[in-house]
């Protein structure tokens, strides 16, 4: 049995037809991957919302492609977790409440302008990649292969956003500087207390530490943001230094009680009957999935 900081690290997952125990490592991996997948989930919906603000047809198409990638990565991680943890398919997308999401808190405030959108999306993309890349050389080969594939696509997200950030007006640069002051600390603290014990690193599933991920994130963004905003690198670094607040939830990587705003959640998982009707039905839906014959439709799971 795995032990973390003196706590019993076994969680019991109960379903109506099955029951099994989740090891501490499984649970830590689930929590970490949910932080990444949920952030990509929200970010993908940002791209969909912003898509029509593109300046040209290829611009709009590029945003659509980025949204498709982000949502694709989200669902690939959801499928991996559902398969490994024995959860019913689509439970992670359709069977959770907003309060159960592990999304990046900085994405809960909608973009206020074009500059704010670019800075926030760029910071989120860099943070997601750096956290993902800690699994790149890890012992979990299925996961590391998936991360490698994601990385090939995410590079172009960052490059595209970098290109857009360096082609902004003076007014938009002002917006980017303001955005960095507000969003920067919230994204930087996503890496949490990098000195804390790391079960995944100890188990070899994560080959790089959170500390190296955080410093890699800083290295990735400082020069690009300096060029885009005209700020000095030291000034940007100072904005990205942030201690975790007292009410920090290290499992969800955000403040306790912080949830996705209702309007954003309704956009992600619509409940309005007209919107649900207009949405393309899932090829394999939660309701008619044949696999559910052998498994519980929903299982109670503690995601925290």
């Amino acid at each position: 049995m795995d032990e973390v900081a003196g706590q019993t690290s076994r969680a019991v997952v109960r379903g109506s037809e099955w029951e099994r125990e989740m090891s501490g490592t499984d649970k830590a991996l689930m929590q970490e991957l949910l932080c990444i997948a949920d952030t990509d989930w929200v970010l993908g919906h940002w791209y969909i919302k912003v898509m029509l603000n593109g300046r040209s047809l290829p611009d709009c198409t590029a945003f659509a492609g980025m949204g498709q990638d982000s949502l694709g990565h989200t669902r690939a991680i959801f499928r991996l977790l559902e398969d490994r943890l024995g959860l019913p398919e689509h439970q992670l997308e359709f069977g959770r409440k907003p309060s159960e999401l592990h999304d990046l808190e900085a994405l809960s405030l909608p973009p206020q302008n074009w500059g704010d959108f670019l800075v926030t999306a760029f910071l989120a993309e860099c943070a997601v990649w750096r956290l993902l890349s800690t699994f790149l050389e890890g012992s979990d080969k299925a996961l590391s292969g998936m991360v490698k594939h994601f990385g090939k696509e995410l590079y172009f997200h960052r490059l595209g956003l970098e290109g857009w950030m360096t082609a902004t007006s003076d007014e938009e640069q002002d917006d980017m500087r303001q955005s960095l002051a507000i969003r920067g600390p919230t994204v930087a603290r996503w890496f949490g207390d990098v000195a804390a014990a790391d079960l995944l690193l100890d188990a070899g599933i994560r080959a790089a530490s959170l500390e190296s991920a955080r410093s890699g994130f800083i290295d990735d963004v400082v020069d690009v943001l300096a060029q885009a905003t005209g700020l000095e690198p030291t000034e940007i670094q100072s904005k990205l230094r942030c201690e975790c607040p007292d009410d920090w939830d290290s499992v969800r990587r955000k403040c306790r009680g912080a949830t996705v705003p209702p309007t954003l959640w309704e956009f992600m998982v619509p409940t309005d009957p007209d919107t649900v009707t207009l949405r393309r039905p899932l090829a394999v839906s939660v309701d008619d999935n044949l696999d559910l014959v052998d498994r519980a439709e929903y299982s109670h799971t503690d995601y925290a």
Binding site: P58, D59, A62, A64, G65, M66, D69, F156, L159, G163
Partner: peptide, 19 residues
């Protein structure tokens, strides 16, 4: 083809548009 304000944006667009 793609039209973009600079090379970085063009590379990003090309990868996204022709995927």
């Amino acid at each position: 083809s793609v039209s973009a304000p600079n090379r970085a944006a063009a590379v990003g667009q090309a990868r996204m548009v022709y995927s």
